[in-house]
Design a protein around this nucleic acid. Structure first.
Length: 300
DNA sequence: AAATGTGCCAACCGCTTCTTT
DNA sequence: TAAAGAAGCGGTTGGCACATT
């Protein structure tokens, strides 16, 4: 069967977005909401493919995005989720409000992977990387039983993390619905994650003193709990990272209302003027990266 | 100061999944 | 039920900024 790639059409622009294009896209979506991405470029007056518009919006322009590096807690969560779900970045992102799959994927590839390798853990399988000593010392069965106990009580990130107060185990936090249960079950069956590595890691010398074992009954399941950093005051010191940053402005500075745009709302001129000009001002004035993009684009 | 290497991330590409007809 | 189209997803790349030699 096969289809023509949507961006192969002659005359469509590629590459970094300009401020003008951003303005058009923001303006269009604020007025019309998100619908039918294929039609968006035409209706918004953009020489982009719908896919490109969707990506730009979801990964950069969306007002509910958090900017800046992932906090420690978020990182731990990503590690745990990755252990369960593998490279399903969108699933992982869905557990981290304000974060995009692209962002998490990038962070994984540039930071977490290295971190894990450095600690002797294979980021792909979440198992210890093979070492000569591993081969020499096969695990006695007794240890296996002990590992089995640990499997149910401890997430890998708790071992890896420097922060000692991991609030919940991933295994509880991610299971919110029947679908997810099934999915997670599937992931556990197929997935590479074998929590029994925890003891091996410990035996290899990783911060044994700092790893409290949590009994399964101690794990709190609160699907309604506020997610990390949903408000500036909701998380620990790490929140200042997001909100104190100089150039990562979009989410906070836009001060947009709960993100559920619809035409009626967006057509309110008062709101529109306020948000529109906030957007434009920020897009044009406040971010070095943005200017970078503009310069870059204008040089092309 | 210039050349080279490395890190990072926005954006693209193409495949998969979902929805509609 | 199958085909076609739209949207979503994950892997990869291009290019800029910064560090190192």
């Amino acid at each position: 069967m096969g289809r023509q790639p949507c961006c192969d059409k002659v005359g469509l622009k590629k590459g970094p977005w300009t401020v003008e294009e951003d303005k058009k896209l923001i303006s269009f979506i604020l007025n019309n909401g998100q619908c039918c991405w294929r039609a968006v470029p035409k209706l918004a007056g953009l020489l982009r493919c719908g896919k490109s518009c969707r990506l730009r919006w979801t990964n950069y322009l969306r007002p509910d995005l958090k900017r800046g590096l992932l906090s420690e807690d978020e990182e731990k969560m990503v590690i745990d989720l990755h252990a369960q779900l593998g490279n399903r970045w969108s699933k992982i992102a869905s557990h981290l409000p304000g974060r995009t799959d692209n962002e998490i994927k990038n962070h994984w590839n540039t930071h977490i992977k290295k971190k894990l390798r450095k600690m002797g853990i294979d980021p792909l399988t979440h198992t210890p990387l093979p070492t000569p000593t591993d081969q020499e010392q096969p695990c006695p069965q007794q240890d296996q039983q002990q590992k089995q106990i640990s499997m149910n009580t401890c997430g890998i990130s708790e071992v890896l993390g420097e922060n000692k107060e991991m609030e919940t185990s991933l295994q509880s936090s991610s299971i919110n619905s029947t679908d997810e249960k099934e999915e997670d079950q599937k992931s556990m069956e197929e997935g590479p994650f074998d929590p029994s590595i925890i003891l091996e890691i410990i035996n290899n010398g990783f911060c044994t003193d700092e790893v409290p074992l949590i009994e399964s009954h101690e794990i709190l399941i609160d699907p309604c709990a506020p997610s990390l950093s949903t408000s500036p005051s909701s998380s620990s010191s790490s929140s200042s990272y997001y909100y104190g940053g100089s150039s990562n402005y979009i989410l906070e500075d836009l001060q947009l209302p709960t993100f559920d745009w619809n035409c009626e709302y967006a057509n309110s001129m008062d709101l529109w003027d306020y948000h529109y000009f906030s957007c434009l001002d920020l897009l044009i004035n406040d971010d070095s990266d943005r200017n970078k993009t503009v310069e870059h684009s204008s040089n092309q």
